[in-house]
């Protein structure tokens, strides 16, 4: 009997947590998204900032904030939704994504810097490479 009551309570709880958001949360998310989309487009298309690196960093920052806005207001990922499992899987995925992208860029940057002596590092290594090999194409490792 006690078991039965427990499942019932669980069912009710489950029904309540399928939160599809309210009109207010959708509108908030939409307005924030519009703002966070318009600003980076304006920064790039209007060539607002002189500093190239600052523009790139700002675009990346606005993208990161907008992803969070979408995940919270449109995908309804909160610590309470699905007993926290959507939040857990999101954070796990985010960690894997960061490792994958940052790792790829890092490793491949080093490969490029160290294996193509004719490009940026041409100054000190170019002399060692005989003429004709420096076609700019990645060389066959064999």
């Amino acid at each position: 009997m006690a078991h039965h009551a427990h499942t019932h309570a669980h069912d009710d709880h489950h029904g309540a947590e399928h939160d599809h958001g309210s009109l207010k949360s959708y509108i908030t998310g939409f307005v924030l998204s519009v703002i966070l989309t318009v600003i980076p487009f304006w920064l790039v298309m209007g060539e607002v900032l002189e500093n190239r690196t600052a523009t790139i960093l700002l675009v990346a920052l606005f993208a990161a904030i907008q992803v969070i806005v979408h995940v919270v207001y449109f995908l309804h990922v909160t610590p309470h939704a699905e007993e926290g499992w959507t939040l857990t899987s999101t954070i796990f995925t985010l960690v894997v994504v960061v490792i994958m992208i940052a790792g790829s860029v890092w490793v491949m940057y080093n490969m490029n810097a160290n294996m193509m002596p004719n490009h940026e590092m041409g100054g000190n290594l170019g002399a060692v490479v005989p003429e004709g090999q420096g076609s700019g194409e990645p060389e066959n490792p064999r």
Binding site: T37, P40, F41, V44, R52, T55, I56, V59, A60, F62, A63, Q66, V67, H70, V71, F74, L75
Partner: peptide
């Protein structure tokens, strides 16, 4: 559908905008 919009944020920011600076 909302997930695809999240991916599109990455596309327009890092495929287009950042490369046009």
């Amino acid at each position: 559908w909302h997930f695809l919009d999240v991916i599109w944020i990455g596309v327009f920011s890092f495929v287009y905008l950042v490369r046009m600076v």
